[in-house]
Design a protein around this nucleic acid. Structure first.
Lengths: 156, 156
DNA sequence: TATTGTTATACTCTATAACTATA
DNA sequence: TATAGTTATAGAGTATAACAATA
């Protein structure tokens, strides 16, 4: 849960002068801030930070120990203690002892956590779909194809 | 300056199951985390957080007061005090009294700040250009065109 | 010994509210 | 009175190092 609301304006063109012709790099940076702004605003509407929203997202389809969660989120185990603790205090996740390993805990979503995760995912989908409205179906498909190629190209 | 290094892996597919076919929304979310990971890693290489990097970026082509900086970055003026203070302590920016307004200060880059801003921008450009290598020139141009349309469509 | 998780600690980042100084 | 900025305070989020309990 963030200290307060995020900025209403997602703060465009953060790193580079914005009067230059739009090149690929600027486009990617600006787009990333736009999308992160949508994630942040969606979370804030439910008093969740982006990392809390991501935690719920990871737990939607699995239970996981602290280390595994940390791997998914890119955080140290000591950071997970606080993150999960705050979510637990809010009733979004629970810790259960692992039946197979006395040292480990299994973190899972509560009913409320599931509800929030679902609402968040739907709202993100809705907002981003709206953001791509100007592209039309063909533009969306082409964008998705290109980004897919980009992501696959990086992940190797 | 971040407490420590960011995760080596930019934590892909953060909000949604990653075995589903890639749709537009998932593509945008994953791409945004990829780009933010590049920004974060680039900053970390110089012991800068993304927000510090953005501060330097905004100041590259203008001097600005605290309120104006806050508007650019989407932060409250009280947050700017600390942000600018830490950058100042590191010798990246300086505060000068405004000649026109006795209440205001003008924040500007030092030599070192300029150097870091330039290096950061170059490194981001290099890394993101590399990330789009698989697209080829035509794919890059098409991606840039689509993202430009998207950004213009949202900004109204 | 190695691994899982927590605790202690320190720092960045952020906001709200109250304040100072100037306009 | 209104505005620019700082300070006081509080809290989230992050890491490193040291620790406890279990494997």
């Amino acid at each position: 849960m963030p200290t307060a609301e995020p900025p209403p304006t997602p703060a465009e063109a953060p790193l580079l002068p914005d009067d230059a012709p739009l090149n690929t790099v600027d486009a990617l940076v600006q787009l990333s801030f736009l999308v992160q702004g949508v994630l942040s605003a969606t979370g804030a509407a439910h008093d969740l930070s982006v990392i809390q929203l991501r935690l719920l997202g990871v737990l939607r389809d699995r239970r996981a120990g602290m280390l595994e969660l940390g791997r998914h989120l890119g955080l140290d185990k000591s950071s997970m203690t606080g993150l999960v603790g705050r979510a637990e205090k809010r009733g979004l996740v629970r810790r259960s002892p692992s039946p197979h390993d006395g040292r480990a805990v299994l973190v899972s979503l509560t009913e409320e956590g599931h509800r929030l995760a679902q609402e968040g995912a739907e709202e993100i989908r809705r907002r981003l779909t709206e953001a791509t409205a100007h592209l039309g179906a063909e533009g969306r498909a082409e964008l998705t194809r290109l980004v897919g190629t980009l992501l696959r190209g990086v992940g190797d």
